[in-house]
């Protein structure tokens, strides 16, 4: 994949992320988030992690974003543009996050990694093998967690009569 594809993708991530946290309409925000996630999936492809990119699109864009849209639609009049969406502490928040960003930029620009060692890209078979051997126990725990989240969501979301 062309190296030059990275920068448009990165730019798209930054722009849509900025929009996603500043826009008034929450529904739009969710869509901007979907764009951010799609761009990040592209970056994963670029980083020799095609499986992760696919998962990103499937789980995030296909699942979570859909969930967000449902939630927004269920909570009715949220998309009303008249309502202010930003709290009163946006000025100090902006200052603090700005400072944090400056600090990080300064640090990364002053401390480059001298010698990156690029290894052979991982194949899907290797990844699967790895997941089922070295990381078998966490993998099972993740499945348990997902089950618990599902059950919990049903219980909490049930309308009590």
């Amino acid at each position: 994949m062309s190296e030059m594809l990275f920068y448009p993708l990165a730019a798209s991530v930054c722009i849509f992320a900025g929009l996603a946290v500043t826009q008034k309409n929450v529904f739009h925000c969710a869509l901007y988030l979907a764009m951010v996630l799609l761009s990040i999936a592209g970056i994963y492809f670029y980083l020799d992690a095609p499986f992760l990119g696919v998962i990103q699109i499937l789980v995030y864009v296909g699942g979570i974003i859909t969930l967000f849209v449902f939630a927004i639609k269920l909570t009715a009049h949220i998309e009303d543009k008249v309502i202010r969406q930003t709290s009163q502490q946006w000025v100090p928040s902006l200052m603090i996050t700005g400072i944090l960003l400056c600090v990080l930029f300064r640090f990364f620009s002053q401390n480059p990694w001298a010698n990156p060692n690029l290894g052979k890209p991982t194949t899907l078979a290797q990844l699967g093998n790895f997941l089922m051997t070295n990381y078998a126990v966490p993998f099972e725990f993740i499945s348990l967690l997902l089950l618990a989240a599902m059950v919990g969501a049903i219980v909490i979301g049930k309308v009590k009569k």
Binding site: C14, A17, V21, L33, L37, T86, T97
Partner: peptide
């Protein structure tokens, strides 16, 4: 740098959104 920017955008959103769904979106970022 990209990740730092994304992180800061998420933090900013989590700090400023009044809408709970907006905060969740920021956390995803």
């Amino acid at each position: 740098l990209l990740s730092a920017f994304l992180f800061c955008a998420g933090i900013y959103g989590a700090l400023t959104r009044r809408n709970a769904i907006g905060i969740l979106i920021s956390i995803e970022l």
